[in-house]
Amino acid sequence: MYRLITRLIAESTLQTIEMVAASSFVAVLFGLPLAVLMIATRRTDLYDMPWLGRPIGWVIDAIRAIPFIILLVLLIPVTRFIAGTSLGTFAAIVPLSIAAIPYYARIAEISLQEIEPGLIEAVRVMGGTRWMVIRYVLIPEALPGLLSGLTVTAITLVGASAMAGAIGAGGLGDLAIRYGYQRFNVTIMFAVVAVLILLVGAIQGAGAVAVRAVRR
């Protein structure tokens, strides 16, 4: 009995980690460029094309306005198109990523916004192009903020991935619903909660270490 519980939990934990890691990766891959695009087009000392960045902001806010549980259902056709199925861990990565991209883009935007205009001016006056400003100033100077934003995003995704359990995504949320809620297995319920707490703590700790390493 206990061996079965341990196996179930170990399996589900791996599925959760898989979902969180993959969607965090996609969130940075698309969210960071979007954030850079919004900042660089808005700033008069860079591209000064606010008409380009602003509509992106609208779309981002629109997606953020939709509760995740509704987004899950809304995105079923998209998920089927990309993943071939709307069920399972791999399929859950699609709606999780689509929710995480705008979330991370807004968080990254805040860190990028804090950059002193003087730093941008310094690189401009050295004869740096706008692209060099992005590469040498915006991203490296905002890196501590970008990393703590990633930590927050990953932790939010742990919660969201549990919700994705509702559509059979697997992972710890799925386990808690199937055994803990539907069969009222209290042991599994508490074990899942304990693992979730440990997981969030581990992500938070790793994030803090990474931020400290780049801040110096």
Partner: peptide
């Protein structure tokens, strides 16, 4: 202009150094 600016050096009141480097 990008090329012309390389002929001029600018020192700032608040230094404007990159702390990431």
């Amino acid at each position: 202009l990008v090329a012309a600016r390389r002929k001029v050096g600018l020192v700032f009141q608040h230094f404007n150094l990159l702390n990431s480097r």
